[in-house]
């Protein structure tokens, strides 16, 4: 089973996770820029974070045979802090980088006027940089937030097939499918989706334009959830081709629209003696 995890925050995971992911069949990931638990207070710390998503993290991933790309954006929660607004000025510079395959995560957290403004501004940047966009839907008041996100996308002029709406569930999938956007599902141990509910949705809505991710980060989450969904699909009677469509072809097709997806085989570099990563002296 080859797996492309289209949404995982590897910066918060250990090298053990990279090893287990490789064993499970994960060969490519996209790490969207998001918040880090502790709120940031200046654009400089965002620049360092973006540098990490373009430098250290792909380098670390490559040592475990996994290709790493990222999406770059000012996330909706921190869009509410005026001290972080300067991040928008940094974005054009970062959106030009080879490793960036979309603008994201953009969207809503609390649906404030500040979030409206930053969301729309970043969809405009996506058009300018000729990149797709990856939209986070809010945990609170999800259906309203998803509907409103689709409205903002429509008004932006960004083609719906260049937009991925993520963290969907049974109540939000239909409107996104109807709008013609890609449908993302985060499979979590407790919250969001689980494997069996995911399989039920795939039975009802089909595999077209559906992406499954672990969204693993620093919270309770599981970087092997993609694999578990693949197994649940097979058990429920889906074919190996169906699994490959959802876990590989669809993310490749969506992020491939950037023209920057590079899936050349990543060779695990030789490990530095006795250490799992070349961390230096």
């Amino acid at each position: 089973m080859r797996i492309f995890d289209p949404h995982i925050h590897m910066s918060s995971r250990t090298t053990d996770d990279y090893e287990r992911m490789y064993e499970a069949g994960v060969r490519a990931v996209v790490e969207p820029a998001f918040w880090l638990g502790q709120p940031r207070t200046s654009p400089d710390t965002f620049a360092d974070y973006f540098d990490s998503l373009l430098g250290w993290e792909p380098y670390r991933a490559s040592q475990f045979g996994i290709r790493h790309h990222c999406t770059i954006a000012l996330n909706p929660k921190e869009a509410n802090d005026p001290r972080c607004r300067g991040v928008l000025d940094l974005l054009p510079r970062y959106l030009a980088k080879d490793g960036v395959v979309a603008v994201g995560e953009v969207g809503y957290d609390s649906m404030t006027p500040e979030e409206d403004e930053v969301f729309a501004a970043q969809l405009a940047l996506a058009i300018e940089a000729d990149l797709p966009a990856m939209v986070h839907t809010p945990h609170r008041d999800k259906a309203t937030g998803t509907r409103r996100s689709l409205d903002v996308v429509r008004e932006s002029g960004l083609a719906s097939e260049r937009v991925l709406i993520d963290h969907l569930n049974e109540l939000t999938v239909a409107m996104v499918k109807e709008a013609g956007c890609w449908m993302g599902f985060s499979v979590y141990p407790d919250t969001k989706m689980d494997e069996d509910r995911m399989v039920t949705i795939l039975k009802e809505y089909g595999t077209e334009r559906v992406l499954v991710n672990s969204a693993a980060d620093w919270g309770r989450s599981d970087p092997l959830k993609t694999r578990k969904v693949g197994e649940a699909m097979l058990k429920a009677g889906f074919t190996a081709e169906d699994v490959d469509t959802v876990l590989w072809d669809n993310p490749v097709a969506f992020y491939g629209q950037s023209g920057r997806l590079d899936l050349a085989e990543a060779d695990p570099a030789e490990f530095y003696a006795g250490n799992t990563i070349k961390r230096g002296g």
Partner: peptide
């Protein structure tokens, strides 16, 4: 400073 790994 603002380069990715290849640019640096």
């Amino acid at each position: 400073r603002y380069g990715d790994a290849a640019e640096r």
